[in-house]
Amino acid sequence: MSSIVKEIQEALAVLSIPEKAEFFPRFFKTGKGEYGEGDLFLGVTVPDQRSVAKEYYSKINLNDLSELLSSKYHEHRLTALFILISKFEKAKDQIVKEEVVKFYLNHLPHVNNWDLVDSSCYKILGRYAFENQKENLLRELSESEDMWHKRIAVVGTMHYIKKGSFDLTKEFVTRNLKHSHDLMHKANGWLLREMGNKNETELTDYLNKYYQEMPRTCLRYSIEKLDENIRQDYLKGRI
């Protein structure tokens, strides 16, 4: 183990909260057959992880960061992703940004829970794809059989939504509208809701076409911010 990785891991260990270490495995569904099966937790809060990442992002290189991101401990991986986001956002050289994106794609097997996905994908991959017209990077993930890849793709379009571009979000939601896992229903509904926050007409036009075939969780997430009367019309099939 490199000295910098050991130093980061020790910094996180000091911040461990026993009650959190006991709670997180249940919260992130680590039981047999659950989506986070086998994941291990130290019990470090996200704000504390962000603080560690802020301290070390400029001190660690990608080779050593690979070691941290490959850890069996969830907080090591999330802290590594926070570091990677900082490296991407602060990079002034396009070559450095491309190296970060390549690193992220090469380490997708370790981006393997919803918080790891949601915290990182649109800030790195989504932004890069948008700024460089590389939509196929996300599209290939949307077409993958791996659920985390699919979630990375659709949540990655958050950056597009923030910029007022909605077609890619609608494409990916539609492709995986009837996915078998609840985590995809939630992600799809969340991104549709964000689209509606930016442009309600875009959301209602999409809902009018697809709401009757949406999983109920997806529908509820997507209409959460609409007027209550309109919400009830969708929920009761009156549109």
Score class of each variant (00 low, 15 high):
57 Y>C: 06
9 Q>N: 07
57 Y>K: 01
110 H>S: 08
121 C>W: 01
141 L>W: 01
29 K>T: 01
125 L>Q: 01
79 T>M: 07
217 T>S: 04
170 K>M: 15
174 T>D: 14
98 E>H: 01
169 T>M: 12
201 T>A: 10
16 S>C: 14
41 F>I: 14
131 E>H: 05
17 I>D: 06
235 L>N: 04
95 I>L: 07
222 S>R: 01
117 V>H: 09
13 A>K: 07
32 K>N: 05
99 E>Q: 12
56 Y>W: 11
119 S>P: 06
139 R>Q: 11
177 L>N: 04
195 M>W: 02
12 L>H: 00
67 E>S: 03
149 H>E: 03
233 D>L: 04
27 F>Q: 06
228 E>W: 02
5 V>M: 07
110 H>R: 05
32 K>L: 11
173 V>T: 06
194 E>Y: 14
93 D>I: 09
33 G>Y: 08
176 N>I: 14
31 G>N: 07
82 F>N: 06
23 F>N: 08
152 I>G: 06
191 L>P: 01
44 V>A: 07
156 G>C: 09
225 K>T: 10
231 R>C: 09
151 R>Y: 00
32 K>C: 06
55 E>A: 10
47 P>C: 15
92 K>Y: 02
104 Y>C: 12
191 L>N: 04
97 K>Y: 01
89 E>M: 03
128 Y>H: 15
200 E>W: 10
56 Y>T: 07
171 E>I: 00
101 V>I: 11
131 E>F: 06
122 Y>N: 13
48 D>R: 00
55 E>I: 09
27 F>P: 02
174 T>H: 08
68 L>H: 14
183 L>T: 14
229 N>P: 00
190 W>A: 14
83 I>K: 02
159 H>S: 10
54 K>M: 09
180 S>M: 11
163 K>M: 15
66 S>R: 12
84 L>I: 02
179 H>A: 15
69 L>H: 13
7 E>G: 07
